[in-house]
Amino acid sequence: MHEAWTFSDYLLLVIGAILVNNILLTRFLGNCPFLGVSRKMETATGMAMAVVFVMTMAGSITWIIQEYVLIPFDLEYMQTIFFILVIAALVQLVEMFLQKSFPALYQALGIFLPLITTNCAVLGVAVINIREGYNFLQTVVFSFASAVGYGFALILFTGIREQMEVSSIPDFMKGTAIGLLTAGLISLSFFGFAGIVE
C-alpha cells in the first residue's frame, strides 16, 4: 500500500513511538506494572529490559500469526484470543530458555517475566501493529521503539519517585495517588514533543 519507506520515515516512526506517542504516557498502556515496579531503580531497570525483549518478540510473532494464520483461515475475529495465548506461551518459553542458557540474565529478568503476560502494553502494541497496517519491518521497529519508550518513561518516573520517598507528602496522597500526579506532570512535559511528528 505505502510507497517504500525511507530511512527518515523509520526515524520518525521511532521518535514518534518514544517521545510523541509514548505508549505509557499518551496511550495509557501498561500502567499497572508502571506504578507497581517503580519504587526502586533496580526493579524498574529489570522490568524495562524485560519489556523491550518480550514486546519486540511478541510484536513480530503476532504479526506473523495474523498474516499467515488468521487472515488465510478467515479467523480475524479470533485475534484477541490468539494473541493473548501467543504472548502467554512466548513468555513461558523465554523464561525457560533464559533459565537454561543465560542464567545470569534470568537472575536479572526472571521475576518480571510472568508479570508481563498481563502487561497490557504488550498486547496493545501487538494490536496497534495490525490496526495501523504496518508491514513486518515497520512492526519490528515500532514494537522495539514503543518498548524503549516504555522503559524510558518507567526509568524517568522511578528516578523521581525515589526522591519522593524522602520528601513530605500529605498522608492521603501517599502511594498510587501521588504516583499518578507525578505521571501526569511527566506526561505534560512529554507534551512538549508533540508536533515533532505529525
Binding site: 496522597m173 495517588a177 505521571a183 501526569g184
Partner: peptide
C-alpha cells in the same frame, strides 16, 4: 493525557 493522570490521582486522594 496529562489531565487523565492528574484527575485520577486527585480522585484517589479524595477517596483516601
Amino acid at each position: 493525557p496529562p489531565g487523565a493522570f492528574i484527575c485520577l490521582g486527585l480522585f484517589l486522594g479524595i477517596m483516601n
